[in-house]
Design a protein around this nucleic acid. Structure first.
Lengths: 336, 336
DNA sequence: ACTTGGCACTCGTAGACTGGGAGTGCCAGG
DNA sequence: CCTGGCACTCCCAGTCTACGAGTGCCAAGT
């Protein structure tokens, strides 16, 4: 693969991304100082098309990159664009104003949407890698308890428990104390083992209640449950010409499961990954790209965040924004 | 206002809503057994247009209702369409499966979006009318506390508190106990009074911490804070022809403040209200209508929910769905 | 062997024009 | 007050055309 051909591919991607119009040989030779004539460019473009990197919407129109072309561009022709120091400051101060985990996440997702002018998706920090900070049991009604689990990341999980029998104040208090001594500081992975013998340590008459609580607790913590995900910036989709598929994209965004796969469907959870067009398995997201990365405290990824946009997107800028936001969120979380 | 004219207006609204095409005199006279000729219908339509109830997109096209026309239709020409018993059962079972407040709200909003095929908006049950079920203080770091407030509606509020000085285990425990004895069962409105003398009841050295906690607590509970709102069904907008304004609508939906006003901008909070087109003050929502109602337990409204759609919407059906969902959510909440 | 200018060709787009048809307003007669 | 008739308006869809951007190919130049 020729150096000049690569330069031409890069130029095509850049021009097409910024103008949204198929780019022709003449305009290309003019705007980028390639040092060759349009005819030469045409020859190279013919080869690039042959190899599947670009295509023309109709005969006698300019070329646009294919998914394969974008892939090559991302892998070999572009570098992540770092944020300006002004932008970094803005990110930092905006995120620093958050006062709880919900707020951190909601600020993050809006920030990312605004920075990239695309749809941002943020996964809540995973429970799996968290540890228990505190467990609370609150009676809500005669036979109903509210279980609240507070994690070291500041996330608060809540569940209603239906106990088969009526509750005594004492039993609840005892159970709460027991749970906290057993579990305080334990990582969620350790929880099942730690509570194994717990039913045996309560009074016989309280065992059914203990069992009910434990079953809900394990379900909450261990089955990695819903892995909450939020998105923002859907309005940025309206600007793009998605023709018929806009509805599909919006529908996909409202499906938690799809969002999960969107962020997760990749190898290494920690590094910045880009999935382009048909590389996405999901029906309906075939004309979109996803730029995602892990984030977390102390270098270990707790969850992922990213943006979704048309394949025709500014990859270097988007990647820079995603990386920067992920870093700062990590810092904020570590500081909380 | 003639009876026949009203019948004609009703027919125009119904036909236009179902076909999305301007309705002409001939088609109208045929489809609805009005017992008069198209010419007569034309005369009446001319009057209706004169009075501002209908309009024609261009000369020599059929008529479409104006906002004023829809208003008359809603007020005097239509009755709320009750849900079928099958639908009611579906609503009930779908909502009954929820296992905590978050889940109730998220199920509700998705259900409502699906039933109406429009954008559904649901406000979390208001804190203002709730009362305190339990307060928890959890040390997160040397100088950082997590305050968790559990309400009788099952909602859990959390806030991080920066204390100026280091924390002793005992102080925290004492403060927690004190808070709970003071506040358990109190409605949020009573909280400020109940904690007034609280700083005087702790040891002198703990007073700064108590003050910090109290200030955050009051801020959380009393300033009615964010009044969380969620929406779903944005995909249903894609189907509608909003021409340029789709972006505006999506943007409005992502603004909590706008959503609040959308639901709240009305007189009686408990009853079903409809706001049509330009009756909405918000820029960008001039071509949408909002059907909203209060919901809550025991007949008192805790919050509001509703749907947003094009002015050209099936008002009777939408109103029926909103009313039904509000009722069932109220029941579920009361049962929790 | 590669580059370049020339040239014929393709094809999408925009504008002009047209006929048909749906719908209207008005009027005169029942 | 209703009705049928009639002329009129104007949107819409289709056709046609001219234009121009862009291409592929070829033959000549370096």
């Amino acid at each position: 693969m020729d150096d000049r051909k690569l330069a031409i591919l890069r130029a095509i991607v850049e021009d097409y991304v910024s103008t949204n119009e198929p780019v022709g040989s003449k305009a290309l030779a003019e705007r980028h100082a390639l040092g060759v004539s349009p005819a030469t460019v045409r020859n190279d473009m013919a080869v690039l098309e042959e190899q599947g990197y670009i295509t023309q919407p109709h005969t006698s129109a300019g070329r646009i990159p294919t998914d394969k072309g974008y892939r090559l561009f991302v892998d070999r022709l572009s570098t992540i664009k770092p944020m300006s120091s002004a932008e970094r400051r803005a990110i930092e101060t905006f995120l620093a104003g958050a006062y709880d985990l919900d707020d951190v996440v909601s600020r993050t997702v809006r920030l990312l949407a605004q920075l990239t002018r695309q749809v941002a998706v943020v996964q809540y920090p995973s429970l799996v890698r968290s540890s228990v900070r505190h467990i609370e049991l609150v009676p809500m009604a005669a036979r109903r308890l509210l279980l609240v689990v507070i994690t070291d990341t500041g996330r608060v999980e809540q569940r209603i428990i239906e106990t088969g029998s009526d509750l005594a104040e004492d039993s609840v208090a005892q159970l709460r104390a027991l749970l906290n001594t057993c579990l305080d500081g334990r990582s969620f992975a350790e929880v099942p083992l730690a509570v194994e013998d717990l039913p045996e340590r309560v009074a016989v008459e309280d065992r059914p209640i203990a069992a009910a609580v434990l079953s809900v607790l394990l379900e909450t913590l261990v089955e990695r449950n819903e892995e909450k995900i939020v998105f923002a910036g859907a309005a940025n989709l309206a600007h793009v010409d998605f023709s018929r598929s806009l509805r599909d994209v919006l529908e996909a965004l409202e499906e938690q499961v799809v969002l999960m796969r969107l962020l997760g469907e990749t190898g290494d959870p920690a590094t910045l990954t880009v999935r382009i067009g048909t590389e996405n398995q999901m029906e309906g997201l075939r004309s979109t790209s996803v730029v995602a990365t892990g984030y977390g405290m102390d270098g270990q990824a707790l969850a992922r965040l990213g943006v979704l946009g048309p394949t025709r997107m500014d990859y270097p800028g988007t990647m820079g924004a995603v990386r920067a936001v992920a870093r700062y969120v990590g810092q904020i979380l570590a500081g909380s």
